[in-house]
Amino acid sequence: MKVLVAVKRVVDYNVKVRVKADNSGVDLANVKMSMNPFCEIAVEEAVRLKEKGVATEIVVVSIGPTTAQEQLRTALALGADRAILVESAEDLTSLAVAKLLKAVVDKEQPQLVILGKQAIDSDNNQTGQMLAALTGYGQGTFASKVEVAGDKVAVTREIDGGAQTVSLSLPAIITTDLRLNEPRYASLPNIMKAKKKPLEVLTPEALGVSTASTNKTLKVEAPAARSAGIKVKSVAELVEKLKNEAKVI
């Protein structure tokens, strides 16, 4: 079966971001960008499904600027067969991304679509669920285990009190949680080979999708800074401070 994986180019998770002085957003100039960590897990899961003989083709898709081709090449080096970039310079909302992905799903007809559970920039945790709504497919969000059997997929999900397993009819949408797998690294020969794999570039207009949004970001500010704390010398001093100064125990 065909598996579609969505990946996002985001600021690297190790970067401590800074808010711009004019409060229009965070400063992303000259900041290291990477594939969103949850998307790496999604790619890894698709590659493992292919290695198990469950998946026959892996198509990786990204929606974003021209530079997102780097992340698509990374996914190709990890084992995806071909890539699609839906090029859009503007910052899209999750709903707009979900609509664009729906158009790609209509075109490609995958049996399984795997996304990360959230992007570490917007922290929205929406796109997978929205894509599931638009396609009418079942959704297995926050997956920690995925097992395909016949025309069903069993997904074990991380929920607040523990784990839950649901069975979904294929085609289905899955979003990955951190513990689903440990993503591999791309080897140099595979990075070289990935340069030759096909990468198709589309536009929202070509897909006939409107990316209009009902949300508008008015400003972005730095969070309130915590006032500097103190170092205590002993446990006894710590307990004394917590009891008498902070009054929390």
């Binding site: 909302t93 999750s94 929205m130 926050f142 607040d160 009902t214």
Partner: peptide, 23 residues
Amino acid sequence: ATSNGKNILPRVAAQLDVDQISE
């Protein structure tokens, strides 16, 4: 914004064709 809320609400928003505001 519990695992249930996060699971269900974006699906609702897409059905209503509106953007969601999370957390």
